[in-house]
């Protein structure tokens, strides 16, 4: 089982490698990747150095070019692909079918992974990408149960990667328009969900109020852990209650299900968090590396360490174990 780890900066990249990553994923400092946050990501020379650093230690580098190309500006994404290939990336993580076609045509030897942003979540969609563009791996969305994953894995002709820890997107990724609705910017086109330019945290008495553009997303009373200001984790007026409609502010943790995921046919486990600091990367990667070879009892003890890193101070197994109510 491979451990695929995030890096938003060269420093975080080195932490991931040292902490036991099998592969590190990262992106360029522009709109070609879905974590296009200020001060984050890699210049061309930084990526080249990072790949060399990883290769010298037997670690792979995956480069995420996982936003959708803007008509007329495709060259930004084409240059990203060319530069990542030239730098020696072990795989490109792509979402846009046009970019997949470009890479398959111009760099047929380059390993291509289907980003979670492509929202490929059934055997027909995945096998189409395998046949059309020689996709070697698919990253499945966080909307499937483990039984769903097992059913899909049996019917597809590529490897399966799933998220096991970190930020939890509960939507059909690549197709979610909530951020776009509130701010006119989205992870799909601009690489930012709830962009920081539109975020404000305001103290009102003892409450902490989070705002996204003109929308109030949440109000955290004193003593309650805070979360990111994403609409999918906002508190809404629902009938006579005031509650979370989609999901609480919470992070994903399904590391206790490693055995079930292995049996389901998963070949790689992904940690979310390119936007987090190097301390998060070091702690999450080293803990999950230990958890992979731990007994179930030891694993549970290890994983409690990660709750403090989690949004809202809580973790969930999300859709992986979702049951109909």
């Amino acid at each position: 089982m491979e451990l695929i780890c995030p890096a938003g900066t060269p420093a975080a990249f080195r932490e991931a490698v040292e902490a036991g990553a099998d592969a590190v994923y990262c992106g360029f400092r522009d709109e070609t990747n879905a974590r296009n946050f200020p001060g984050l990501n890699f210049s061309r020379p930084e990526l080249k150095q990072a790949i060399a650093y990883a290769k010298a230690r037997g670690v792979q580098t995956f480069v995420a070019l996982n936003t959708f190309m803007r008509a007329g500006d495709e060259d930004i994404w084409y240059r990203g692909a060319a530069d990542a290939v030239a730098a020696g990336a072990d795989a490109l993580i792509l979402a846009d079918f046009g970019l997949m076609a470009h890479v398959a045509e111009h760099y047929p030897e380059q390993r291509l992974h289907v980003s979670v942003q492509a929202s490929a979540s059934n055997p027909d969609a995945i096998n189409f990408l395998v046949e059309a563009f020689n996709a070697r791996r698919v990253v499945l969305p966080r909307t499937l149960t483990i039984a769903d994953i097992a059913r899909i894995a049996r019917q597809i002709r590529c490897e399966v990667e799933v998220f096991v820890f970190g930020g939890l997107c509960v939507m059909a990724e690549g197709r979610c328009s909530l951020s776009s609705y509130a701010t006119a910017k989205s992870p799909n086109m601009n690489g930012v969900c709830s962009p920081a330019s539109h975020v404000r945290y305001v103290a009102e008495g003892h409450d902490l109020v989070s705002k996204l553009g003109d929308y109030t997303i949440n109000r955290f009373p004193e003593g309650e852990a805070a979360g990111y200001p994403t609409l999918c984790k906002g508190r809404f007026d629902l009938a006579s209650t005031h509650a979370y409609a989609f999901e609480d502010p919470v992070s994903l943790d399904v590391m206790n299900e490693i055995d079930a995921l292995t049996q389901a046919g998963v070949t790689a486990l992904k940690i979310e968090g390119r936007q987090r600091g190097k301390a998060y990367v070091a702690e999450a990667v080293s803990t999950l590396r230990k958890a992979l070879s731990a007994t179930p009892q030891e694993r549970t003890r290890l994983l409690t360490r990660l709750e403090a890193l989690s949004e809202g101070g809580k973790t969930t197994t999300g859709a992986y174990e979702k049951r109909w109510r």
């Binding site: 955290f220 502010p249 987090r276 949004e311 809202g312 101070g313």
Partner: peptide, 21 residues
């Protein structure tokens, strides 16, 4: 860079005001 700022922001030990970007 010895701590993950987000974690301490979640636990409300750090507060950020003004230009978040």
């Amino acid at each position: 860079g010895r701590l993950d700022a987000d974690a301490f922001f979640f636990s409300r030990e750090l507060t950020v005001t003004g230009d978040m970007e």
